[in-house]
Every structure is written in C-alpha cells, then in structure tokens.
Design a protein around this nucleic acid. Sequence first.
DNA 1: GTTGATTAGTTACAAGTGAAACCATTATAG
DNA 2: CTATAATGGTTTCACTTGTAACTAATCAAC
Lengths: 153, 153
Amino acid sequence: MNDDVLVLEEFLPYRLSVLSNRLSAAIAEAYSRRFGLSIPEWRVMAVLALEPGLSAAEVADRTAMDKVAVSRAVGRLISTGRARREVSAGDRRRSMLELTADGRRIYRRIAPALQRYEAELLAVLDPPDRRQLEALLGRLESRAAALQPPRIE
Amino acid sequence: MNDDVLVLEEFLPYRLSVLSNRLSAAIAEAYSRRFGLSIPEWRVMAVLALEPGLSAAEVADRTAMDKVAVSRAVGRLISTGRARREVSAGDRRRSMLELTADGRRIYRRIAPALQRYEAELLAVLDPPDRRQLEALLGRLESRAAALQPPRIE
DNA sequence: GTTGATTAGTTACAAGTGAAACCATTATAG
DNA sequence: CTATAATGGTTTCACTTGTAACTAATCAAC
C-alpha cells in the first residue's frame, strides 16, 4: 500500500460529499418541482414549523446556514406568502419569524414525503445497523468539530 | 412520536450534508490557501495523479462532477501550468489529460496531508467500527442509487 | 447623556454553478 | 458517398453563493 497515494473513491470526505449531494439533489428536486422551494427555503420552513417565533440568527444556527443565506431565504418565503415577520417588541433589531397558514400547509405536504424517503433509504439497514449508523455519525460529527484543520506544508 | 414532524437535526440527509460540508470546507480551505486550488481542481488532480491520460469525460465520472465543471477545472489547471492536454491521436475530439511535473509535485504535497486528516478523523473509531462505517456507507450509496426519488403529492 | 463597541439583519459585488446552446469531429443509416 | 445523429468538449447566460461593507438598534463605559 503506497502511503502517498490518495484514492478519491475511498476518501471518506469525498464519499460523504457524493452521497450527501445525491440525496440532497433528489430531495430538493421534489420540493422545488412541486412548490418552487430552494434548499435554504425548505430548511428555514422546517425549523419554523417546529419552533415558530425564532429570530433569523436562531434559524441560522439550527440550520447550519449563514445569516446571509437565512436572510435571503426568509425574504423569498415572505414574498411568496409562506412566512411572516414581526419586529420584536423588546429589541427592535430582531424579528420573530413564523410560517403563515399557507407555509404550514406546504410543510405538512413535504415533511411526510421526506420521512418516507428516509425510511426507504434506511430500509437496507436492520434496526441495530441503523442505531450503529447514528452512533458513528454522531461521533464523526463531534470529532470533526474538535479537529484541527489539515495543514499542508 | 408525531409522524408528521420532521426534526431537521435528526434527518439523515441533512446530517450528512452538514458533516460533509464541514469536512469539505476545512479541507478545501487548506489547499486553497496553500496552492489556490478549488475543490473541482483538486478532484481533477487527484484522479489524474493516479490515472494519467484520462479524457475529460472519464475524469467527470470518476469525480462525480459534470462535464462543464471538469472543463473549467481543467482549463484552470492548464493555465496555471499544473496539467497538460494532448489531442488524442485516434479521435481528435478527445484529449488525454495529465499532470505536469509541477502538478505532480503539488499533488504529493497535498495527498499525505489529507490522509493524515482523514486518519485523525477516523481515530475516534476503533478498527471494527471503521470497517462497519465503510460497510454502512457502501450500502447507503447503492441504495441511494437505486431509490426512487421522493414524490410529493 | 455621549462615544465607541456589539449585535441583528440587509445589500452590493465578485466569483462560482448549472442548463442549454453551441462547435467540431466521428459514427450510423440509407 | 451524403445526410443525420451522436459524442467530446467549450461557451453563454441566468442564477446562486460567499465575503465584505453597510445600516440600524442596543449595549457598555465613562
């Protein structure tokens, strides 16, 4: 085994990237075709559906998006009548975001379809394997957060 | 458990996307800072290092990139003197691509650093867990390829 | 209070990306 | 052969994205 040779197809970050892109593209295609939503818009909807009243910054860290992306996604959701913004009473810089009735209706159409899709994907794994996958992912996530970035001399 | 509620943080495609983006960003930052390479350029280099003489289309399917992205990445690699293109003798539409000496030098600087990084990431897993992770990923990859995209009614 | 620093969020600009149109070359059908 | 289709690759255009600069509001220090 040659230590200096990196086989892209076997490199974990690359494999994750390809898998993740395939899944995201398939999913995004579905809700984009049906409701004209982008990935950022869907993510914002997904968190607001569960926690109405969040501020843009709170949405940002729950969705791993940056504030500019959130701002744009929220702007589109509002202009399409799917979300609403109310300036916060105590702090007039903040605003509280929530879905409109229409936004909630759309969410309730999308969410179950995506859960079905996830279930079909996970159907190749039996329950112990599924638990193992979650566990391994969790450990990689925290490791990735803790890890020093690569240094190239 | 409410069936209609999708918790983004627990949704597998979302988790994969966040993890993958974090890893890719950390890695890309390193080689971009050091050599001004973009992700597509690095991917092209990585396959040409192992298989010099590939055509652009062959590079495309080994890197999961589309042909436009490959064309642009190759264009930049050539203009920065890191790759070379030779029109194929038999078929003058094709060309054979390869790294220049400079390109190979850069590859040999990057590859080991990325392997070290991968090793540090995987260091949280003992060898059986690592094998299990590879196996699970493999099964998800083929399942994802076979799966019907989600349908939203 | 007034000044300077922080924080929430938006805007502007450059760069990156994807889909479709395009050019050149080779393959196929009659 | 000649016409049409298919293939390899590049270019174009509209759109998205990321970074930095910016505005507005609040906070902290004096």
